[in-house]
Design a protein around this nucleic acid. Structure first.
Lengths: 103, 103
DNA sequence: GCATTATTTCGATAATAGTCGAAATATAAA
DNA sequence: TTTATATTTCGACTATTATCGAAATAATGC
């Protein structure tokens, strides 16, 4: 991953609402979560949540697919992985504790 | 690390200039880098760089210490480590590839 | 003290991000 | 074919961030 792309992704995660959403989506795994499910968990106005989701989509970290009336959100795991790789390998090479490396 | 703190740190890294600076500081290690050294590498106006440095300081990721006329910048490795731990363990538990975990 | 070097602070401006109600769109169900 | 549900888009506003020249501060050497 290039630095600029990594910066964009990190900026998207650098907001409490979006980082919380990201955590939920990691936990949700392949199944993902409906927007409504996220809304219930994060308890914010629909329009605000939608705005944050749009942010995540533009970065590519989040993928939406329609299932009837429901829009289901999933992480792009490959991109997420690439971002973590960038941070851990390229960016912080040698900075890792044994513990983190074994996480 | 708490989510809010992680979000603040990620937001600081979520800017190309600051992420580039972060990389330089990782590479520089304990020795750190003078502001002037960073400026030469990143080639931006002093005032702009200073602004970004101030951002990094408020997040706690960057520590400055004066050595004569020179201000030396170092990363707070513990905090950096805590942030990576947060992402890898708390946030992305189970999402790691073997490869990344072994980085 | 005065000039030099290193860096920040100030101040102004432009750009981006965050918030949220109201209206619009998409789909399904009655 | 109307009503209900899920979600987004619009519009307006406020707040934060980014940029950078000019002036200020801090330390050193003459």
């Amino acid at each position: 991953m290039e630095l600029d792309k990594a910066a964009i992704c990190l900026a998207k995660l650098g907001n409490p609402a979006r980082l919380a959403m990201f955590r939920l989506l990691v936990k949700a795994g392949d199944e993902g979560l409906a927007v409504g499910d996220i809304q219930k968990e994060l308890d914010m106005p629909h329009s605000t949540l939608s705005h944050h989701i749009a942010h995540m989509i533009t970065s590519g970290l989040l993928i939406q697919s329609r299932e009837g009336r429901v829009l289901r959100c999933r992480l792009d795991y490959q991109l997420t992985q690439d971002l973590l790789d960038y941070l851990m390998k390229d960016c912080c090479k040698g900075l890792l504790s044994e513990e983190t490396a074994a996480a």
